[in-house]
């Protein structure tokens, strides 16, 4: 036990907390200042967590097998970049992204196909909602058995996981255009496809992006968990499960950091794209 570190952690924590309380009570007039404060407050909080984590690990001499310090994890990331990059390629770029693209487009395509059949919609929607609540991740062992150890089996899991949220959201979105707008299209003598492309698809975009955002996190989780059931000797899920077995916890945390970064970046990219496409939506105009 090292008292200096613990006192330092406590002081830093209280200081940062006080700073944040002071910052949020400021009433700046300038827009730029408000933005800076809104950015600074969570950053200070995150920095505090890192500092307290580091100090507590040193202060209480926690074994690196249980919880490595952030500095040790950072060192590991720097030292094993090639391994991390290879895992990232296998898990995210191959299995995750391909599965995501195929699953989302399949869900979208089926939604368009059943668009003209209320019968199929009434049959498929409750089922889709039900399947979305199921632990679909459990099909991973079956997919590994069918499609082999390499990335296609992981992509297959992701396809199934992402299909239903996309289907349900797109069908809901296609019903989102209001009666006034549909009537307007009819007065223009617009056909089914014209109405679909010019009115209903744009109106469905907020729903479709909702599904894209949900699916972006599902894709990464699906791939990594599917890798627990059998994989070639590369991939983030493989690395995590073997390094846990070898008690190299810092390597596990390094993979987690990469996964969190990739997941956030992916989510952020989808959200950015959403702002560009659905610029007309009230929730985006307001902010």
């Amino acid at each position: 036990m090292n008292l200096g570190w613990i006192v330092f952690a406590a002081v830093f924590w209280i200081g940062a907390w006080g700073l944040n309380e002071w910052l949020v009570r400021l009433k700046p007039g300038h827009v730029l200042h408000i933005r800076t404060i809104n950015l600074a407050v969570p950053l200070i909080f995150g920095l505090t967590i890192l500092v307290v984590w580091e100090s507590v690990v040193h202060g209480f001499s926690i074994s690196p097998i249980l919880l490595p310090a952030p500095s040790a994890i950072w060192e590991r990331i720097i030292n094993s970049t090639p391994t991390l990059w290879a895992d990232f390629q296998q898990t995210f770029l191959k299995a995750g992204l391909i599965g995501y693209a195929l699953g989302c487009s399949a869900g979208f395509a089926v939604a368009i196909m059943i668009d003209r059949s209320p019968f199929l919609q009434r049959g498929l929607l409750p089922l889709g909602n039900f399947v979305s609540a199921l632990p679909i991740i459990g099909i991973a062992p079956i997919m590994v058995m069918w499609f082999g150890f390499d990335w296609p089996s992981k992509a297959a899991v992701v396809i199934v996981m992402t299909f239903f949220p996309m289907l349900v959201n797109t069908v809901q979105g296609l019903a989102a255009a209001s009666a006034i707008e549909s009537d307007l299209m009819r007065t223009y003598a617009a056909g089914y496809w014209q109405t679909l492309i010019k009115l209903r698809l744009p109106a469905a975009m907020p729903f479709i992006f909702n599904a894209l955002k949900i699916n972006s996190t599902l894709a990464l989780i699906g791939t990594i968990v599917a890798e627990f059931f059998g994989t070639p000797i590369v991939g983030m899920g493989f690395r995590i499960s073997t390094e846990v077995g070898r008690m190299n916890i810092d390597m596990v945390w390094a993979e987690i950091a990469v996964a969190a970064l990739a997941g956030s970046a992916f989510y952020g990219a989808v959200a950015l794209f959403e702002r560009l496409i659905t610029f007309w939506h009230p929730s985006i105009r307001a902010g």
Partner: peptide, 11 residues
């Protein structure tokens, strides 16, 4: 929630 917790469940 961007950390795939399911992935680190083993750890």
């Amino acid at each position: 929630q961007t950390i795939p917790i399911l992935a680190i469940a083993p750890m």
